[in-house]
Structures are given as C-alpha cells and as structure tokens.
Design a binder for these strands. Structure first.
Lengths: 260, 260
DNA sequence: CGAATGCTTGACTGCGGTCAAACGATGTGG
DNA sequence: CCACATCGTTTGACCGCAGTCAAGCATTCG
C-alpha cells in the first residue's frame, strides 16, 4: 500500500473534501443531473459569495421556523442527527459537498431537519438559484429540475437508510454505505482512484450506521483483513468493488414479490 | 377483558378499518390538517366514485413511469415493501385509511415507491382534488395545503422509522409503532376507546419493524404479560399509554446536542 | 378429515452491545 | 525536554438481544 508521500491528495483536499471552487463543484453536480443552458451556467458561476465556515458540532441550518435561505455545502461533512433521551445518536442522513441544505420553499420534513457540521464545513448561499428556478423563466428549466432533484436524492438515500438499518447486518451496512459515499463523491469529482475522503471517526460512522463504536471498529478491521476496503489517512480505499457490491446488495426498489 | 360480544366493532369495521363512507373519512382527515372552505368541503363530498378493491398482495400503485392518478385509501392496510435478494422484506412505510398514494406531480421517491395491499384495500381516485389544488384558485388554498401536508406526513413517518430501526430495541420499536398507529387511527376516528384495528399477522408486523416472526411474537407476549398492550381479535388494545410512551421515547427532532 | 395458516414455545446460536484496558498520535504546560 | 492529558483506535472478555430451527397447537377451510 502506498504511504502518504505518494498520495498527497490524502492530506489536504481529500481529508475533508475541501474545494475552494464551490461554484465548479456545484456546476459539476448539477450538470450531472440535468443539461444546463448557458444562462444557467452563467448564473451558477456568478456566485462569488465568500463561503461561510461552520465549526464541527455547530448547527448549519437551524430550525423549522424562519430558517435561512438554502445553502450549498462547498466542503466538509455534515449530518442530520436525532438525539435520544439516553444520549445515543442516530443520523438520518450524512451530507457531503454538493448537497444543498435548508428549506426549498416546500417545507419537506427531511430538509427542515437540523443539519450539524461533523467536520469544518464551508457553505455558500444559493437562494439566487432557487429564485431563478422558481420564476419559471424560460432558459432556467434545467436549474429548476436540478434543484428539486437534489431534494429527491436526499429522500431516496433516506429510504435506503431504512432498509440498511432494518435488515442488513453490520458488514452489509458498512459495505453499502461505502459504496454510496464513493458514488456520491464520484459525482462531484472528489474520488481519487479507488479512494474517497473519510474524515469521520469510527464512533461517528457508527452513529450513522446504527452500530456501537467497538463493533464499528471490528467491522472495519474485518473489511481490511478481507481486503475489501480500508480506512487510511482520512480516506477510504476500496480494494474490491465487486465483492463489496455483492455484500451490500440493496434490493431493487420496484420489486414487490418475494422470490417464491 | 371484554370478549367479542361486548366489542361488536372488533368484528366488521374494526378488523380492516372498513368505512364505506370514504368521503367523510377523507373530510375528517383533511379538516384535521387545515381549515377548509365550503367549496372545498363540497368538492370532497362530490366524490361519488365507487371504491376500487385491491386484493392482498397486489400492487395498488404501480411503477415510477406513467403511474395512475393519486388514490385515497378508503379502507384496509397497505405497505411500501422492499424485497431483498434472500427473500426477506423490509417495509418503508405502512399505509392506512386516509392516506393518499401515487405521484402528486412532484415525483417524490417515497410516493413513487410501489404500494402493496396487505389486507383487502378499497381506494378511490382523488385526482380532482389535486387538480383543484394545483389550479391555485382562491377558496381552494386549504385543500392544496392539505394535499402537500399528507405527503410531508408520510416523509416524517419515514424519518421516525429510521430512528426506530437504527437505535431502538424490539420492545421500544413495537411500543412506538403502536402509539403511531393509534394516533393515526384517532385522526380519522377509527379508534374505539383504547383500541385500534390490527389486521396484520405477526410476521407482517415484523417485516415493518425489522424483527423476525418469532421475536415479534415474544415481544407481543411480553407486552401482554406486562399489561402494556395486547393484540386481540384483530385489534390492538392499549392498556397503559403512559408506560408505553415512556418506553417508546422517540427523540425531539430539533435537539442537536447530547445531554452534557 | 387433512391441509393450510397463524400463533406459541423451547433450545440453541451468534451478532452486536457493554465494560475495560491498552496503545499510538497529538498537543500542552511545566 | 519530559510529564501528562486527550482523542481515536484496537483488542479481549462477557453477556444479552434477537435470529434460526424445530415442534406443537388452534382455527379455518376445502
């Protein structure tokens, strides 16, 4: 395995997904969802706001009431936590660069849920994009589609989370989670070979996957031992996509009957 | 414990939530969400379509593509299943009378998920309501609000399901599930005292709560032994709401910090 | 009557939680 | 520079919740 010097990206960019050019990240994300008109591209590139920095543990996107305008995560990781009475925590979702937070005017429960920074997080306001999209002006249809599609994607991931937690064991959950993260980072061009950033502690990852810290560690150890994937220097290296996917094996959403 | 003769409702109406007056059920449900104008009430009462009957196991609301117009469940239970490769099943949601299925024009992933009848289910089309709501005509604002609110409620329940599956044990899940069902039936006036319909087999209930048939049975036995709740004659009788709620204890969604 | 369905119980096993200790890396102050 | 604290990871020991296998029972239905 290559050590740090040969993987310079594992230090800066990779560790927290820092990308100072938030506009380009957003452009890549949206363009992957839907074709954009020149006017839309220009609008996205016109965002010059200096990103706001959120410290780990702070709430990015506050309450259900007069919550702030939608914001784009430019760098860093966030989550939507639920805290139980006994202090345990279960995350509904993990938010990565390119994800959009805040009410989109439709007051979806998931979007209204507080988002909390897990690492240092940088965000920029993208209210302009929503305004342009909501005006239904010609030439901005792709943008409108993309904005609503971003919300749908988060909902889709929440549904996957239900299945993961409901009927997958620890190894399957972890495998599926890693593959999900990989493809999400791939969409925004932040993978490097078979690697993607992983700044979360094992305890935090366990809070997402519904596993205790100790068991999370055992699973990661096992995945490494079996040469499926490993966490190293703030990044996950996937050694065997095929076997990992075989393990994860989330069901076809359209399937309705059991195999006799 | 009263036996059957003293609980006649447990036989017909109760068992599957049958209510031949779907309009009134819908009216009650929507009116509980938002105030309605006389015009809206009239529109709802003008639905005279004969309910369509869906046999258990059949798909009510087909695929992501040209799916049918939105339909209201008038009676019976349905679910949104995910089938795993090994034949196991995890439900994303359980759908009860008063719930609306089908795409509402916004292509939400949850609403696009197939819905399958668990008992005999009766539904009526409610496309007219959505048309009236989408026209933004004055006097129909409450209806529009209510229709979108129904979708939000389903999303909220999906989020609760994540927490249930992620970090509650079998007893807690069951307790919380029963309380959820009770309050949902209460909204549509289908509770009777401390009781609500429960036509599901223990295996099916287990598929919702991520529990095996055998363990589901043990939990129900335990709840009955502890005089918290019991399933009897196709209905759940809640003996002790307070203790059940104490057990269930889902977290405050707005809470973000752990206790100290 | 037998077959099918759903509920119940026992025995066993194993996944995953809890407690505890130790280790390495990093950081801080004396 | 070292002592010490902190944080995250790692490992062992133990145990309990929940899954699996299996059998038995009640009810309904053909």
């Amino acid at each position: 395995m290559a050590s740090l010097p040969s993987m310079p990206w594992a230090r800066g960019d990779m560790r927290t997904g820092v990308n100072t050019l938030g506009r380009e990240l957003l452009l890549r994300r949206i363009a992957a969802l839907t074709p954009l008109s020149p006017a839309e591209v220009a609008l996205i590139l016109s965002i010059t706001e200096k990103p706001k920095l959120h410290a780990p543990g702070t709430t990015i996107c506050p309450k259900s009431d007069g919550s702030p305008h939608p914001r784009l995560i430019v760098s860093g990781w966030a989550c939507r936590p639920r805290i139980l009475a006994d202090g345990r925590r279960q995350m509904l979702a993990v938010l990565l660069p390119g994800d959009v937070l805040g009410d989109r005017g439709d007051r979806r429960p998931l979007a209204l849920n507080p988002a909390v920074a897990l690492t240092p997080v940088r965000t920029v306001g993208v209210a302009q994009l929503f305004e342009a999209a909501s005006l239904m002006e010609p030439g901005f249809g792709g943008l409108a589609d993309a904005m609503t599609e971003l919300g749908r994607l988060e909902e889709t991931r929440a549904l996957d989370q239900i299945v993961r937690l409901g009927c997958q064991n620890a190894v399957q959950r972890t495998a599926h989670c890693f593959l999900e993260f990989y493809s999400r980072f791939r969409e925004i061009g932040l993978t490097h070979g078979h690697s993607f950033p992983m700044p979360l502690t094992q305890e935090t990852l366990g809070d997402f996957l519904g596993l205790s810290l100790v068991h999370m560690n055992r699973i990661l150890t096992q995945l490494r031992r079996d040469r499926l994937a490993e966490v190293r220097d703030g990044a996950v290296i996937v050694h065997d996509f095929a076997r990992l996917a075989l393990l994860a094996d989330l069901p076809d959403p359209t399937r309705v009957d059991r195999p006799n």
